[in-house]
Computed example of a mutant assay.
Amino acid sequence: MVRPVGRIQGQRVVLVPYEKEHVPCYHKWMQDPKLLEDTFSESLSLEEQYELQESWNSDPHKCMFIILEKERMEVPEEELSNVEAMAGDVNIFMNDMEDEKAAEIDIMIAEPRSRGKGLAKEAVQLMIKYAAQHLQISKLRAKISDSNSTSLHLFRSLGFQDVGHSDVFQQATLELVLESQ
């Protein structure tokens, strides 16, 4: 896998690589206990968040994009400077040792004013296409908390099928087999 480069343009969102200028806003989001619970994350210091951002960009098995909401972008041509338009993130992890063509995907619309606008659906659709065309991924897996009905509905509406459940973690596993591109 290669580090994400450039941007991915949608109708309502622009996906850009996760860069240092995004970290302060991302760190602020990740102080929300509900987001931490929904994303199975831990609260980190700002310094730890910068280290995590660097690790994302250097790990060949991870691909992270920040979701920018076009409606809130002041200067669309300068998307990386549009930190105020940040809505969330969408990620792919290649963490299946038995299948190098499989990856885990997740989405987070962290900015409250960006929720309920269809941005997550568009961002996941763009990432599915990116995964198939640029990363040669043939299967995507999403692990979602039972309490996160919004994400469960989103992934199921995009064709992901329930393939497992962890009672211990109270988490569903859904998969989507991608068509050959």
Rank of each mutant, 00 (worst) to 15 (best):
R3S: 11
G6S: 14
R7I: 01
I8V: 13
Q9F: 12
G10K: 15
V14L: 08
V14E: 08
P17Q: 08
E21L: 14
H27N: 03
H27K: 02
M30N: 01
Q31W: 00
Q31V: 05
K34G: 12
L36S: 04
L36T: 00
T39W: 00
T39I: 01
F40M: 09
S41N: 07
E42N: 04
S43P: 04
L44C: 00
L46P: 00
Q49E: 01
Y50C: 10
Y50N: 03
E51M: 09
E54V: 06
S55E: 12
N57Q: 14
N57G: 13
S58N: 15
S58R: 13
P60D: 07
H61S: 04
H61M: 06
M64C: 14
M64W: 02
F65Q: 06
E71A: 00
E71C: 02
E74K: 14
E74V: 12
V75M: 12
V75P: 07
V75D: 05
P76S: 08
E77K: 09
E77R: 12
L80D: 07
S81M: 14
N82D: 03
N82F: 06
N82Y: 05
N82L: 02
N82W: 01
N82K: 11
N82I: 08
E84V: 10
A85L: 01
M86N: 03
A87Y: 10
A87N: 00
V90E: 10
V90W: 05
V90Q: 06
N91I: 00
F93M: 07
M94C: 06
N95V: 01
M97G: 10
K101W: 08
A103N: 06
A103Y: 07
A103Q: 07
A103I: 03
I105L: 11
I105P: 09
M108L: 14
M108H: 07
I109G: 03
E111W: 05
R113Q: 15
S114T: 05
S114E: 04
R115W: 08
R115I: 13
G116T: 15
G116W: 12
G116H: 14
G116Q: 10
K117C: 08
G118M: 13
G118P: 05
A120M: 10
K121M: 13
E122K: 11
A123T: 07
L126E: 11
K129G: 00
K129R: 12
Y130S: 10
H134G: 07
L135R: 06
Q136L: 11
Q136H: 12
I137V: 13
I137A: 02
K139S: 11
K139T: 05
L140D: 01
L140Y: 04
R141N: 03
A142F: 06
S147A: 15
S147M: 13
S147E: 14
N148R: 11
N148I: 12
S151V: 09
L152W: 02
L152S: 00
H153A: 15
S157Q: 10
L158F: 11
L158R: 04
Q161L: 03
Q161V: 05
V163Q: 11
S166N: 15
D167N: 15
F169T: 13
F169L: 15
F169G: 04
F169K: 15
Q171K: 15
Q171D: 02
E175A: 01
E175W: 05
L178H: 00
E179D: 08
